[in-house]
Design a protein around this nucleic acid. Sequence first.
DNA 1: TCAAGATTGATGCAGCTGCATCAAGTGCGC
DNA 2: GCGCACTTGATGCAGCTGCATCAATCTTGA
Lengths: 162, 162
Amino acid sequence: MKRKPSTEATAAWIRLMRVQSRVLDAVEQELKKAGFPPLAWYDALLELSRAPTGEMRPVELEKQMLIPQYSTSRLIDRLVDEGLAARRECKIDKRGQFVEITETGREMQKKMWSAYSAAIEKHVGSKLSDTDAVKLCGLLDRLGCSCDETAVLAVKDGVAAR
Amino acid sequence: MKRKPSTEATAAWIRLMRVQSRVLDAVEQELKKAGFPPLAWYDALLELSRAPTGEMRPVELEKQMLIPQYSTSRLIDRLVDEGLAARRECKIDKRGQFVEITETGREMQKKMWSAYSAAIEKHVGSKLSDTDAVKLCGLLDRLGCSCDETAVLAVKDGVAAR
DNA sequence: TCAAGATTGATGCAGCTGCATCAAGTGCGC
DNA sequence: GCGCACTTGATGCAGCTGCATCAATCTTGA
């Protein structure tokens, strides 16, 4: 039997998988309990709300969120169904479209951020000093393949998780 | 707008989500490319192969793997369909059953571990010194709610990720 | 002994994901 | 101007997940 990875590396792998899954579950549960939609919706609403004009091309959204095309397409469907966003035709490129966040969508994003930020604080912030959080970031960043433009883009009104 | 979590904590949260998802994806992809089933199957096979008698109660498996009951039930279905495990009736408790790993199942587990361990090395081991891996474990453990019996149970022939 | 409650495992349903593919539209080279 | 490759977005299908619920069996306590 091979034994390529050190026990230390293997232990880190296991922790990474388990802890992430527990923490994510915990946060998602809190959102759900508070009657909010899943995190992915929040991420999309946040991106849309940040767009200067309040609207984006799906392709754009897709690149920001780093999710596959079909996934974007369906996420938009759901947002539209719930009145949180609206599709607008794109006159310059008839294949395309624009997705615009609605007023309801903006409100939802803000309300979600209250619950979301509280959950982050509860499940991460309160368990780690700021300096430890920084250390953790540093170590994790080294695992992120050719990591991360988006870097320390934590802002006043929200963060995108995925 | 509230601002409960520190920027550091928020940054750590984002990293945790993103890096985990990238690393997991990468590892799963390698398994898939090598023609193997998903990681969850490996975890189950590993648990079964570790059972002294080669068989376990589904309830047992469920507790080890920390996945919900219905999930276990279906995972077993798939393993059985592929001939990697077999259901045995349980004479002491007629509600229950035993799940036994087959010879094919044992072989699969071993073959998967080759690919799996190589992937761990590639995506974690090679990017972190052992001492850094230990630091990472320490930090992650602090996030794990009332963490982890299973602790440093990395062994000669495999690890369970979830 | 027997009824109430707990445990064990399966399953129908809805929702989400990935994969493959499709149709429509664009734009580039010639 | 025409054809061909590329981009944009949607969708059918299969698989997996969570939720709720079910049937069967076991256990407990009066």
